[in-house]
Amino acid sequence: MLAIAIQLFIAAFSSFLVVGLVSMYDPGTVDGHESGVAITGSDATPLAAVVDRQDGLEAAIYDDRADAHRAFENRRNDAVLDANRNDDGRLVVRVTAPDGGLETTLLVVQLREALETLEYVERVENADRLEQPPLSVPDGTDASPYAEFTYVVLLPLLLFLPAFISGSIVVDSLIEERQRGTLELLRVAPLSFVDVVDAKLVATASLAPLQAVAWLALLAVNGTAIAHPLALIVLVTALATLVVGAGGAISLWAPDRRQAQLLYSSVIVGALVVSTLLPEHPANTVAKFAIGHPTATTWLSLALYCLIGALAFASVRVIVDRIDSDSL
């Protein structure tokens, strides 16, 4: 329960962060406030047309540059654009924006889009001087900017986190039994030591797919379609077995909790970094399954994870068989 509560908290926290970050780069999502932009200079007209077309910007042409700046200082507008053509025929735009704040960030993002449109218009006019004229860019859709984030970051995070936490739980639980000496008590029970370790591994590893099912259901309720849920659950099970196996091996080998946790976390971090060398990043595998475009590599990766997971589990059994349980 506590584990799930914490993960909920982490998920809420991370999505809060990202909603903040994404809305930074997508000013359209932050309300339909219009910023006034004063436009001045010899080539104000084409610029004003482009600026007016941009969402959230409203252009006003000033003939006198000083007037525009005075209006900026008095906050009648939020930015001053001074457009003049130089000797090469380039349009030089001097932007004066207010110093500081989220508003400036949003404003500059909007201005950049407007200026990029202007650049495109100018380029098309120059098309005869370019070897490859620019391809026409279609208008954007009103797709949610979080949709891709959900598939690429949030979903992998939600699926991998339970596996890592399961591994940590195994380390804690085995090390604690060793340090408290309660493994001795378990050995009196009519169970082999292998059975005891197996039971612990299976119990904690099975938590991860259960949580994965819950997350997938929650996402589906929230309108995020998951194309291959079964493949994802198999993937999580395989990863959880792998991680829990590694955790089990570490806790049998390390002398106390501090070192076990240190080793466990460095192994996990190491594995995460090394996984970027794979032909397909695990998070990418998850995203492809979820969005419904798995390739041959994706299926192969899934098979690979299943294989490694099984191997990890088997090797823990071998380790348990080999070690002298009295030495624990």
Binding site: R94, T96, A97, L115
Partner: peptide, 13 residues
């Protein structure tokens, strides 16, 4: 290819 040049300055009000 680059027909527009932009300079931004931030000014405190």
């Amino acid at each position: 290819a680059y027909p527009v040049l932009v300079t931004v300055s931030y000014q405190e009000r």
